[in-house]
Simulated scan of single mutants.
Amino acid sequence: MAPIASDLTKDQRKQLCDFLGNVELTLLYKASVHGYQASAFHQRCDRQGPTLLVAYNRLGYIFGGYTSVDYAQSGREITDEEAFLFSIRGRVPLRIQVNTYNARLDDAGGPNFAQRLYFFHKNQPVVYYSKSVIALLDQPFNTLKLYGNDTELTECEVYKVNQTLQVSFKEKPWRNILWTSKRREELMDLIRNHKPLMPSVSRVRILMIGPVGAGKSSFFNSINSVFMGHVTSKAMSGSAGTSLTTQFNPKAPFQPDEQKASRPASLQEKIHCVVYVIDATKISLMSDQLEEKLSSVRSKVNSVAIPQMVLMTKVDETCPHVQNDLENIYASSYIKMKVQEVSSRLGVPVSCVLPVKNYSQELELELKCDILLLNAIQQMLRFANDYFDDIDTI
């Protein structure tokens, strides 16, 4: 039997893959072939892992949604941090993040998002939505932009999303790094003996900013582990729904110390370097809302001339060759592409984006992991010295 043809053009498929990163799409279900019955959809799409639904209507809109959680007809409300809606009609693709804790209802009906937006409803080729869906999305829901308010479908497809393992390597590493025990000891000595460029400053102050689960606390734990000589967990870390980093709470207004508020902050009390922490596995899924927040922060930091850099965490989870051997990190063209993507989306130079791997499930230290972590600290200290140097020349 000949394989079922996809309605997506090559360019449309590329646009969708740009949302999802390094993936391959395999067609599981096509409504014009298998029918618009919910039972037919579930027969072909249940327990297939991450899936991408693509719907088409008479106005030429191509829209749908992604979920990283299996369809299973469990009857449960699904939590999915990666779920989103999209529309790729026109030059500028639209992406709408779905509320993490109400991503969809895993029922026996047709595929749905935010529990109120159904793609084909009651076995009919129509999109159904309830206005209450607005409260279940992380940004305003505009049906006109999503599908032109044309609720009649001409086709509906569901694709299995597979992470591709075809990651190429450069003949020459795009960054040079020494992976030796001697280099690790050199870096540790440099960091232990570091003295800020300004005599009036006893220690460097670094502010780390990033979404929940990106790896801020894990980075702190990892650095502490390197200098302790064994894996530690001094700062709480994990994947809870709220941040476990208590030093900086993005939901609470900043309350300055009353004594300090009456006078200008000293150089010792100021921030000397800002570090954004970004999960490499979620760069392509970064919401417009998060990107705008980071852009706003970056603009304010730029206004006070504080150096900025990015830590790109979980690199081993995004590239299988790096997972096998961290030494491949600067030979991987895929990691380089991710560094360039972070650079473009956050507006920082490529040279200011450093991929790292935090300690998470390991019981013992690893040389190459230590060297990446220590290199990151060295860069932060260098950036802080750049800040002091600029002040000294004013």
Score class of each variant (00 low, 15 high):
71 Y>M: 04
107 D>P: 02
70 D>T: 10
68 S>F: 14
64 G>T: 11
100 T>V: 12
109 G>N: 09
101 Y>M: 14
54 V>F: 12
113 F>W: 10
84 F>E: 02
75 G>E: 05
93 P>H: 04
83 A>N: 07
113 F>H: 01
60 G>F: 05
109 G>C: 05
97 Q>H: 14
79 T>N: 07
105 L>W: 09
88 I>F: 09
86 F>D: 09
79 T>L: 04
70 D>K: 09
92 V>W: 10
75 G>P: 08
80 D>P: 02
92 V>Q: 15
53 L>V: 09
108 A>C: 08
87 S>W: 07
82 E>F: 12
81 E>M: 10
77 E>P: 10
76 R>A: 09
111 P>W: 03
78 I>V: 13
56 Y>I: 13
88 I>H: 08
72 A>K: 10
91 R>H: 04
75 G>W: 04
77 E>L: 15
97 Q>L: 13
53 L>P: 02
84 F>Q: 08
96 I>Y: 05
67 T>C: 00
91 R>A: 14
88 I>R: 03
64 G>H: 09
109 G>V: 05
83 A>T: 11
60 G>R: 03
55 A>T: 01
102 N>S: 15
68 S>G: 15
71 Y>A: 07
97 Q>F: 06
61 Y>W: 11
97 Q>P: 12
85 L>N: 07
104 R>E: 05
113 F>K: 08
105 L>Y: 06
112 N>C: 06
65 G>W: 07
86 F>L: 05
105 L>F: 07
63 F>A: 04
106 D>R: 02
90 G>W: 02
75 G>H: 02
95 R>Y: 05
81 E>D: 12
73 Q>N: 07
71 Y>T: 08
85 L>F: 04
93 P>R: 09
78 I>Q: 03
83 A>C: 15
70 D>A: 06
106 D>E: 03
77 E>A: 12
109 G>I: 07
66 Y>L: 01
91 R>G: 11
57 N>R: 07
113 F>R: 03
65 G>E: 00
88 I>D: 00
85 L>G: 05
93 P>V: 11
57 N>G: 10
76 R>K: 13
63 F>P: 08
58 R>H: 14
112 N>T: 04
68 S>L: 13
88 I>P: 04
82 E>T: 13
63 F>M: 01
93 P>G: 11
69 V>F: 09
92 V>T: 14
78 I>E: 11
107 D>F: 00
66 Y>T: 06
92 V>R: 14
92 V>L: 13
73 Q>M: 08
